[in-house]
Write a protein that binds this DNA or RNA. Structure first.
Lengths: 130, 130
DNA sequence: TATTACCTTTACGTTAACGTAAAGATATTT
DNA sequence: AAATATCTTTACGTTAACGTAAAGGTAATA
């Protein structure tokens, strides 16, 4: 047979993304990943690796794993049903709304941080440096 | 005495920010809020209200409550010590770095969402509408 | 005055997202 | 062949962030 081009072991992914193997297996338990098996051993395809990357990106954005699974499943092919597609569009827009809210939050926070920083530097000046 | 201008009860804040009173008391238990008391009853000043707003903003950005407390304490006055100020600037820059990472994540996700949406709409077209 | 509406503290329960340990299979290296 | 490295499953433990009573104080209102 062919295949076996660019696959990954669980520990390889674990090192690359700086998470434990337990974490990766946990994502599989929750249905976010479903790698192939060579015998008993898990074998991760490039597509699996991309899924993991997406999951971790979602985590950084404060998404729950359930949310991430939903979003990731959006990118999957074969959404045949029209109702499904419409639901999907709704979900996408809801997610976009949440992200825009986050953007606002971030710009507010960055603004606050800038002020805090200049205040800080001012205080350092008037305090005198060693 | 004066004061009593624009204070808030716990249930008022609870309604305004759509969190439970338990949540607000929880933030106090963790040292994120410390409202005044009228007898036994908590009385929240506008400053307390702002702190709560900041906490919830942090939550939306995926910060832990401990992280939020650190950040919020940055805005407090009276950072007299020079070392403290320097540590503070470091913390601010670290936080800024994290936020910029989040911005990248969000733009990537938005890009993905856009593609998913157009794919979706294409699929709807070729599937025909009812 | 009795009910209704808020307020309080105390304390155990719950969920998500893993951590950690045990016990064993497989496989490569010394 | 023995040791070392990776893999596996199973299962109980942990932490954060609250939820959910329970039991009671205060105060305005019917």
């Amino acid at each position: 047979m062919m295949s076996a081009m660019a696959d990954y072991s669980i520990s390889q992914l674990s090192k690359e993304f700086e998470v434990t193997t337990r974490t990766i297996r946990h994502y599989e338990e929750l249905g976010l990943l479903y790698p192939a098996r060579r015998g008993q051993t898990r074998v991760y395809s490039p597509a699996d690796r991309t899924r993991l990357r997406l999951i971790l990106r979602g985590k950084r954005l404060g998404l729950s794993l359930d949310d991430s699974r939903e979003i990731i499943d959006m990118y999957e092919p074969g959404k045949t049903n029209v109702d499904q597609l419409k639901k999907l569009i709704d979900a996408i827009q809801a997610q976009r709304h949440k992200l825009n809210q986050q953007l606002d939050d971030i710009s507010l926070l960055l603004k606050d941080l800038n002020k805090a920083e200049t205040d800080c530097i001012e205080a350092l000046k008037s305090n005198g440096l060693p």
